[in-house]
């Protein structure tokens, strides 16, 4: 269980996140929705430990984010909004590179399977020759190498074609339901959010998304 207890975040004097609390259970996919600049990426970065909240506490099961940061990081799979892969390496080399640095040892075959789950089959191609969508798939695949329990995905499917998106969606669903992962997910695609997420958190002043999703019969928590 991931519990967020009244966290706030300001940059200089500008308050981006104000007193936000919620919990996400194992097996749950939580959507994170809001207009551009609302603070979705900021929140995910805080949950991923790459940013510190100005106030508030976060717990992953019994571990406190302030005290047990090392253990927590082992359990987190973070897909950053900006694609974080080596352009000069091939898909395979990228996977092997991050496997070498990861907490879990994976065979080449296992690495290839992760890529296939993301419907990425250009194993030997240099990343710089891949399309934007394929890079996104690899960006996602790398974050899954160490089999994390918490998946924090910042717009992972931008530019990915509908068929692959559906496949990635059902993969994530399986990860949540069968393997008890906690998945927090941002997207600007409301169809995707409606289809995939058990619950939605909306952030930002504008009630537009809250109303839209409530109308569609989603459980929405807004901040």
């Amino acid at each position: 269980m991931l519990s967020i207890e009244s966290i706030s975040k300001s940059f200089k004097r500008k308050k981006i996140i104000n007193d936000l609390s919620f919990t996400a259970e194992a097996g749950e996919i939580v959507g994170l929705v809001g207009e551009n600049g609302a603070g979705k990426s900021t929140l995910l970065n805080i949950l991923a430990t790459t940013m510190k909240p100005t106030a508030g506490d976060i717990y992953l099961n019994e571990s406190n984010y302030r005290k047990d940061i090392k253990t927590i990081r082992k359990h987190i799979g973070f897909v950053p909004q900006d694609i974080a892969i080596w352009d000069q390496l091939t898909v395979q080399e990228n996977m092997v590179f991050f496997e070498k640095l990861s907490w879990k040892n994976r065979s080449k075959q296992q690495l290839q399977e992760i890529c296939m789950d993301m419907s990425l089959d250009r194993w030997h191609d240099p990343v710089k020759n891949l399309s934007g969508g394929m890079k996104r798939k690899l960006n996602l695949a790398i974050s899954l190498i160490h089999d994390p329990t918490v998946l924090l995905l910042d717009e992972p499917t931008v530019g990915i074609d509908l068929k692959s998106r559906k496949e990635i969606g059902s993969y994530l669903r399986k990860q949540a339901t069968e393997n008890g992962k906690i998945i927090i997910y941002t997207s600007h695609d409301m169809d995707e959010i409606k289809e995939l997420c058990d619950r939605v958190i909306t952030i930002g002043e504008d009630p537009f998304y809250t109303e839209l999703l409530k109308k569609a019969g989603k459980k929405v928590l807004s901040f």
Binding site: F78, D82, L101
Partner: peptide, 18 residues
Amino acid sequence: NAIVGIRFYFAKIKFSNY
């Protein structure tokens, strides 16, 4: 400068050690 730097938060080797 590389964006991949962010991945070292979750690696078994810290960026500084790397």
